[in-house]
């Protein structure tokens, strides 16, 4: 029993501690990047939902989950913005020549 407690405590201590301020900043970054993509007309359908879920997880006290979701949202938003830039430069390549 004592051994089990020690193992459990060690596991808890070794788990990464996620600061909620970091997660808030991550969510804000995902949101502003999503809005940039939306302004360019290239927003993806799932990004806003991921941001909402991250905000809810943070509110519920699960900072680790919130960080995971916000990271995913940020990646999507960054990719949609890259897509907007790519399309702006290369759309004519796809037209019949």
């Amino acid at each position: 029993m004592k051994k089990l407690l020690v193992v459990a405590m060690a596991a808890l201590l070794s788990a990464p501690v996620v600061a909620s301020t970091e997660v808030v900043a991550l969510i804000d970054k995902a949101q502003s990047t999503r809005l940039q993509a939306a302004a360019a007309g290239f927003e993806w359908t799932k990004t806003a939902g991921l941001i909402k879920s991250a905000q809810k997880a943070l509110k519920d006290g699960d900072a680790a989950l919130a960080q995971k979701l916000a990271s995913k949202a940020l990646k999507q938003a960054e990719n949609s913005l890259l897509q907007a830039q790519y399309s702006d430069q290369h759309w004519q390549d796809h037209a019949p020549q």
Binding site: F42, W44, T45, K46, Q83, W91, Q92, H94
Partner: peptide, 11 residues
């Protein structure tokens, strides 16, 4: 019409 968009990256 010729711009790729969305998560599936399709025009």
């Amino acid at each position: 019409f010729y711009s790729k968009r969305g998560q599936l990256n399709l025009a």
